[in-house]
Amino acid sequence: MMIQVSGLNKIYNSGEHPVHALIEVNLEVKAGEFVSVMGPSGSGKSTFMNILGGLDTPTSGSYRLDGIEISSLDDTGMAKVRNRKIGFVFQNFNLLPRMTALRNVEMPMLYAGLNARERVKKATTALERVGLAGRIDHRPNQLSGGQIQRVAIARALVNEPAVLLADEPTGNLDTRSGEEIMAIFQDLNRSGATIVLVTHELDIALHTSRIIHFRDGRLEADEKVENPLDAVEQLKKLGPAHQNSPRSGEISAPGALTEAVPHSQTLSAEQGRKGDAR
């Protein structure tokens, strides 16, 4: 079992009344699964992802990742888990703007203590895998949103983590770039990667093989997706890039790091419609 969560509680005592962000959550994810986590805001899914990612610790309960009990680790132990076991992909990309794609992808390996030659070799390989072989010396402001997110995926992959955690990875992207990102995730999953993806778009969640729903801090539903959408097929339906979305894949993202565009309503409505049509 790759992820084993049992009896997990998270209580915030910051205000006057304690807030139960997570209540008795139990979950098991096998190696090689592709799981999406859904739920309205305030449902506890972000807290859950933070705990899965080793950024936060549960108030009580157990979380085992790849056989390691995470909830009892100290700062250094947690840092090591984040470095070796987890690859993060964020909604707002979180690349360092003054560094090239290559340097950004090198960063997890810096903290893993790899030497420069190994770092460059592995980072180049990872960037090639996400289709950015020709962009390794570009800075984030010279790349489109989709390309930036692909750099972030390369960065998440590069230390060969046990789990990829993606928090709304398509949230700041247009449909086409979003599908391209999903195609990469599906490809990675097919070659064995365990992926947990947070989204509030059903259309994105339907690309995964299992959907978990959170509501009011509880894990409310856990359902299997019978025939997951294939991102490559979806891309074919969208047609050639220039017809449907002329700027697709070319949207420059100045200040990619600081960009925090709220999720586009029209985009999700359109995607919802496509989901229904299917």
């Binding site: 990612g53 840092a79 090591k80 993060f88 960063m107």
Partner: peptide, 16 residues
């Protein structure tokens, strides 16, 4: 601050 958050998420220890 954001950079520090990113580095920590990628595995930087307090010491780093």
């Amino acid at each position: 601050t954001r950079e520090i958050g990113i580095r920590k998420a990628l595995g930087a220890r307090r010491k780093d």
